[in-house]
Computed example of a mutant assay.
Amino acid sequence: MFLKIFRLIVFSLIVIINGFIAWMALYLTVSMFNTNLASSTVEQYTFLGAVAITVLLIWFGFSRLGENYMRAKLGLKPPIPQYLERLQPLFAEVCQRAGKNPEDYDLFISPENIYNAYAVGKRTIVVCYPMLSLPDDELKAVLAHELAHIEYKDTRVLLAANLMNTLGNISFGVIIAITIFVGSFVSSIQVDDRAGGGVLWQVLGKLWLIMIVAFLKLIAWILYKILEISFLAVGRGEEYRCDEYACRLGYGIPLASFLYRVESMEAGRKKNLWDKIKIQKKGFAETLFATHPPIRKRIERIGRILENRKN
């Protein structure tokens, strides 16, 4: 609960900082091309414009449009008929056990050549191509796990934060372009050029503005990374929760079987002793940015859940 509140605060700071940078970019752009409006009027309208853009991006990140954008960005494709004939009845059984309508979700195939599946937005469940080689029970267990991610709303906020960071990056570029190549923002500085100080003060003014915006952008980037890490930390806990969801639907044994399969394949890819040592002793950064808990721990936890259900 604490992490969820913490990441909400960090997300809010990301929105505020990048929204402020967007407002500065709008203000400089309008001031450069329109000298008829009073400064206070420009400030007011550009502020409202930045707020509107921010709200629109956040809405987009949580909307079906944002979900469709992610589908296109990830190169997801609807299953071809022969794949759909296999996946649909399996997913329908999972939804029946969960009390859900399979029509409320969309199945997609990812071109990634890895054993993986994931959820996007409110209704997208993605199966990577190699997963189609799994036995039916294991594939149903994986689909149940991904259904849980959607039901627990684990997949939405990070896209909105990413869009806000993109807005901040574009706005930062606009500010640099205007202050360096046009310099209209500092044209109101009155310095006696005959004293040789006018050009110097204008250059210093431009550099000072760029330094302030760069510092704000750095803070926004740091906050985004903090948000990302907090999402990963919460996400690792959510993996356990989604495993438990699949166990409640009766897919605990096939899910453990799938995880053991993946663990065996990972171990088989380690060509020498050094590779095996590296996988056993992960560094702090690697652990911090891990998207999933260690497979062995997930298998052990599923075993405990199944044992408790027997008792």
Score class of each variant (00 low, 15 high):
R86K: 14
P254L: 15
V51H: 05
D136C: 10
G283S: 08
S110C: 04
I150A: 00
K270W: 05
T166L: 10
K278Y: 09
I302A: 00
Y240W: 03
E244N: 13
P78M: 07
D192W: 08
I219L: 14
G173P: 04
L227G: 01
L259S: 02
A92M: 07
S230M: 14
A233I: 08
I302K: 03
K270M: 14
D193R: 05
M211L: 13
K4Y: 10
F284R: 11
V157H: 08
V186P: 01
L204G: 07
N18H: 07
K4G: 07
R248A: 04
Y260G: 11
I305A: 11
Y260F: 09
I222T: 15
A144V: 06
L288Y: 08
R309E: 11
L132C: 05
E238I: 14
S40Q: 15
S39L: 11
Q44L: 13
I219K: 08
L273S: 06
Y240M: 01
A290G: 04
I5K: 10
Q190V: 09
F60C: 06
Q82P: 02
K282D: 05
Q44V: 15
C242Q: 02
Y27C: 01
F62S: 03
I16Y: 02
R7T: 12
N101G: 02
V51I: 13
L306Q: 08
S40H: 13
K276P: 02
T291N: 15
F215M: 13
L167N: 03
V142I: 09
E263G: 12
E112M: 10
I109K: 03
I80Q: 14
S171M: 05
I175F: 03
R156W: 07
I299L: 13
I14M: 12
I189Y: 04
Y152G: 06
T35R: 14
V55Y: 09
L132R: 03
Y115L: 14
F215Y: 08
V142F: 00
P78E: 14
V142W: 02
E67A: 02
L3R: 10
N272I: 07
L143K: 02
T46V: 10
K271W: 09
V174W: 02
R194K: 10
Q82N: 11
D275W: 10
A285I: 11
G205K: 01
Q202P: 00
D154T: 06
I14G: 03
I80H: 12
L218T: 12
L90G: 04
K282V: 06
T46Y: 07
V234A: 05
D275V: 01
G75M: 12
F231M: 09
V127I: 12
I114Q: 10
Y240N: 02
N36R: 14
K281W: 09
F185A: 12
Y251S: 00
K140A: 04
L200V: 12
R261C: 00
G197R: 12
G205L: 00
A72F: 08
C242W: 01
V10I: 13
M70H: 01
E286P: 02
G168H: 00
L87Q: 03
A52S: 12
G121N: 02
E146C: 10
E244Y: 13
S188A: 13
L74Y: 08
I212E: 15
A50D: 02
E138T: 04
F284T: 08
L107V: 03
S31C: 03
I114T: 14
G252Q: 04
D154N: 11
F215K: 10
I176H: 01
H145I: 01
K77V: 07
P254F: 15
R156M: 11
A50L: 06
G303L: 05
